[in-house]
Design a protein around this nucleic acid. Sequence first.
DNA 1: CTTTCATTTGAATAGTTGCTCATATATTTC
DNA 2: GAAATATATGAGCAACTATTCAAATGAAAG
Lengths: 125, 125
Amino acid sequence: MVRTKMGSNIDVEICEQTIIHKDVVQKVSKAMSNDEDLENVADLFKIFGDRTRIRLLRALYQSEMCVCDMAYLLDMTQSAISHQLRILKQAKLVKNRKEGKVVYYSLADQHVMQILVQAYDHIKE
Amino acid sequence: MVRTKMGSNIDVEICEQTIIHKDVVQKVSKAMSNDEDLENVADLFKIFGDRTRIRLLRALYQSEMCVCDMAYLLDMTQSAISHQLRILKQAKLVKNRKEGKVVYYSLADQHVMQILVQAYDHIKE
DNA sequence: CTTTCATTTGAATAGTTGCTCATATATTTC
DNA sequence: GAAATATATGAGCAACTATTCAAATGAAAG
């Protein structure tokens, strides 16, 4: 959070091998070791980082839907949709319920969509 | 936003090929056609969806840093770091300034980190 | 029981990606 | 100018991923 001025922090004139600003590295290293699991956020973003899955989440934000409807909506095969829904379900982003032969999917919770919307706002600047 | 009850919306008894709930699909399709570019969010998330890049952003959130310091901090080669910084810069997530031989990177804006933090909160539930 | 249909699943494939290695560029110092 | 150093860059490679295709489930209907 505190932005240090670089010009005054060069305490190691010539880097031994790769490190130049020893104090900065130590400070940042200490701050980063506190909550390690922030890095697991990458796994969540990896799931968001696919056009098909974003479209699916967005569709389900509007309404609960069955697999074949989503396939029609996105103009993709049922198999492809089913594969992606499996990934979304494993990540606990969607849930499903069965009604006869038809399986209906919906968002696991509303909070998920807030992350998408905020990212959307960021892009529009 | 409005969750419709599925059981009462089956207006097409037998699906022609793949579509079952015509009205739902039409409604969702209409809602999704409004702001197309929400789907471009996937590109932003694709960048967030990498452990190394998340760690870099997190480090730069603490302090401006040069390439070799980041390489030392993350225990990776300078080349690998440089490649990732290039991706982050193309996405306008970081900026850099040159001072002699050394190139210092920093976050392009603070808003970026808010998205990460919110995702982090979501994971912790 | 057989057929039909919605969905799932696994293997195969084409495309993408993150890293490494070698090399190039740019700047300082001698 | 030559050597040293910080960074950037491009090719190559191994690992991963999204889709397709074929086949398997599982439930309803005849």
